[in-house]
Write a protein that binds this DNA or RNA. Structure first.
Lengths: 195, 195
DNA sequence: AGTCGTCAATACGCTGCCGTATGGTAGCCC
DNA sequence: GGGCTACCATACGGCAGCGTATTGACGACT
């Protein structure tokens, strides 16, 4: 029973391969040996390579939206804490796969469309949290944009720094965005204290 | 005299092709007809396809750092205004080519190294401006990171919005990052006013 | 035991692209 | 005008990867 495959195991392997080698590293003749079979098997489960790519996009769209949103919502009910958790989550799990899909979407329409939907959903979620935190809708949208783009930017820049410091900085910046909403901020913000 | 080519015209065309189709759309047999020649010409100017790619990276590193930094420095001597100009510049010229190179760097070591150097230089520039604006070195680094990653994120997210609104929002957020440096901010920041 | 459905191996043809080899042309220099 | 240089065209060999065709193995059901 262990060795017969189903379509989902192919897409699962495809996600892994996509994460490490990019779309055009995602070849069925490279994926097949990873699963211990030959490509003869692949073309039983899928019509095309394109069909596999579509399946990959569908799967990613799910994990990149529903999964993270659920995880964050489960973590806390308070908006600010949710955003903190989201930030931590991005640094922990938002890694090579996200980068690969976005790189893919840079020159492929199908992928671009999925990325666009994912961005929209996640952005709306961040907006909602900021509104819940007390911002008016308009200001929430502007702040959410800064917050969201910064998180995406973190995934794509290669400013080398150990991860813990990056998270710490990102959280500090998050507090900046959470404060100043009309009520005066509590903490002093004179000069940074270093690490 | 018009039709004989030199190496630089090849790299120039390569940059254009890279911007619209990505690295693996950058094929010499597709580039050749764009220049009105055949690939027989290419292999006179270059040893390899790899050599062309290297040339492309060298060229991009230059335009992505020196060029923009010079442009911004020429625009103003005041740090805050420089950052505003940088923001505008990103939305105006920082387009498909940057995305293409970064997508390329996601799974290619050579490209990744160049992207990394570019990020480092630009980040240091932003840091310097923030310090010049009055922040202490440590706080400047944290803020610069938020600012820089947000700009990169803007280039890579596909949150559809007309460009002018995006610039406006980004500039508003920039003011947020510039303020709060110890002296109290001047403008009111209660509720956003919409477009 | 035979049959059918499910999954896989092998072998093949085709295409896109790389890199090479070879020959061609146009200007310049003597 | 013969040769040399710089640039280009054409033709070729080779490889990687796609998709197909054919055959095979193994379990379930009757």
């Amino acid at each position: 029973m262990g060795d017969r495959l189903s379509a989902s195991e192919w897409t699962e392997g495809a996600l892994k391969l996509l994460a490490e080698r990019g779309v055009d590293g995602l070849r069925v003749e490279r994926l097949a040996p990873m699963l211990g079979v030959t490509k003869g098997s692949f073309y039983w489960h899928f019509m095309d390579r394109a069909e596999l790519l579509d399946a990959v996009l569908v799967e990613w769209e799910h994990v990149a939206t529903d999964r993270v949103i659920e995880a964050v919502e489960r973590a806390s009910a308070e908006p600010a804490e949710r955003l903190r958790e989201l930030t931590r989550l991005v640094f922990r799990t938002g890694g090579p796969l996200d980068r690969a899909v976005r790189a893919w979407g840079a020159h492929d329409e199908r992928a671009a469309k999925v990325v666009s939907r994912v961005d929209a959903r996640r952005y709306r979620f961040v907006c909602a949290q900021l509104e819940g935190h007390g911002f008016g809708p308009a200001l929430a949208r502007v702040r959410a944009r800064l917050l969201y783009t910064a998180l995406i930017g973190e995934q794509h820049t290669s400013l080398r720094l150990n991860r813990s410091t990056r998270v710490e900085w990102a959280l500090r910046n998050l507090e900046l965005l959470l404060g100043d909403s009309g009520s005066a901020p509590k903490g002093d913000r004179r000069a940074g204290k270093g690490s």
